[in-house]
Amino acid sequence: NQASVVANQLIPIQTALTLVMMRSEVVTPVGIPAEDIPRLVSMQVNRAVPLGTTLMPDMVKGYA
């Protein structure tokens, strides 16, 4: 099973992502693949992302 990127904390809207905000976890449905974590650093979320939420491509500006 492929690991996805999951929020390690509440990430407020417009926040630039850092490594400490994300973790990898095998979840359903599958979100952004964990191997993309380095690419996500400094990208902004376009909505508030609660703790434990799987990051989906449409939540990160410039990802999809």
Rank of each mutant, 00 (worst) to 15 (best):
M59V: 08
M56F: 09
V20M: 15
D36I: 07
L51H: 10
L55M: 15
M21W: 03
D58I: 09
Y63V: 04
S42I: 04
D36T: 08
A48E: 13
L17Q: 01
I32H: 02
Q14L: 14
Y63R: 03
T18Y: 04
V27G: 01
R39S: 08
P29M: 04
S24A: 15
I37E: 01
V41K: 03
N8R: 09
Q2E: 14
D58E: 14
Q44W: 10
R47C: 11
V30E: 14
N8E: 06
E25I: 05
V49D: 02
I37L: 12
S42A: 11
M22I: 10
A7T: 10
I11C: 03
E25T: 06
A7D: 01
M59E: 00
V45C: 10
R47E: 08
N1T: 15
L10T: 11
Q14I: 05
M22V: 08
S24W: 06
V41G: 01
Q2R: 06
I13T: 12
P12I: 04
Y63S: 04
D58R: 06
Y63K: 03
M43A: 07
D36S: 10
A34K: 05
Q44E: 15
L17F: 01
P29A: 03
G52H: 07
V45A: 04
Y63P: 03
S24Q: 14
V45S: 06
V27A: 06
T54C: 05
V27K: 06
R47V: 13
V45T: 14
L55E: 01
T18F: 04
V27F: 03
A16M: 12
R39F: 10
T28V: 09
M43T: 01
A16T: 13
Y63T: 03
E25C: 07
E35C: 14
I37F: 03
D36H: 14
V26W: 09
Q9L: 10
V49S: 02
N46V: 11
T53M: 11
V26A: 09
L55F: 09
A3Q: 08
S24V: 09
N46T: 14
V45W: 00
I11F: 02
A34R: 05
I32K: 01
V6I: 14
L10W: 13
L17V: 03
P38I: 08
E25V: 08
S24C: 07
A7L: 03
N1M: 14
I13N: 15
T54D: 02
A16G: 08
A64Y: 05
P50A: 11
A16S: 14
P12S: 07
T15E: 07
G52L: 04
P50L: 10
V27E: 02
P33N: 11
V45G: 00
P57C: 09
A48S: 13
A7M: 04
V27C: 06
A34H: 09
V27R: 09
I11E: 00
V49A: 04
T18L: 08
R39D: 06
L40K: 00
S42L: 09
P12G: 07
A64S: 14
S24L: 05
Q9S: 10
A16V: 12
M43N: 04
V45Q: 00
Q9V: 10
K61M: 12
K61V: 14
T28W: 07
V20D: 14
Q14S: 14
L19T: 09
D36G: 05
I37G: 03
V30Q: 15
I37W: 03
D36K: 09
N46M: 13
A48L: 11
S4A: 03
G31P: 00
L51P: 11
I32E: 00
M22R: 00
Y63F: 12
V60T: 02
G52S: 05
T53W: 12
V49T: 05
M59H: 08
P12E: 10
A7G: 01
V20A: 14
D58Y: 13
V45H: 02
S42E: 10
G62W: 09
A34Q: 06
V6G: 02
A16K: 10
A64H: 15
P12W: 04
N8F: 04
Y63I: 06
L19G: 06
K61N: 13
S42K: 11
L19Q: 09
T28N: 12
Y63L: 07
Q14P: 02
L17G: 04
V6E: 00
P38A: 13
A34T: 07
L10F: 15
P50Q: 13
G62S: 08
S42H: 10
Q14T: 13
V60S: 00
V26E: 15
T18A: 09
V60D: 03
I37S: 02
Q14D: 15
E35Q: 11
V60F: 05
K61D: 14
V60Q: 01
V26G: 04
Q9A: 08
M21Y: 05
N8T: 13
G62H: 11
P12N: 07
A7V: 06
V20P: 15
I11W: 02
I11A: 00
M21F: 04
V26Q: 09
S4N: 01
E25D: 13
I13G: 15
Q14E: 15
L17D: 04
P12R: 09
V60L: 09
V49G: 01
L55V: 12
T28S: 15
G31M: 01
A16L: 10
V60G: 02
L17E: 04
L51I: 10
P50W: 05
P38E: 11
P12V: 05
V41I: 12
D36E: 12
I32P: 00
S4V: 02
P38G: 12
K61E: 11
G31Q: 02
E25A: 12
M22F: 07
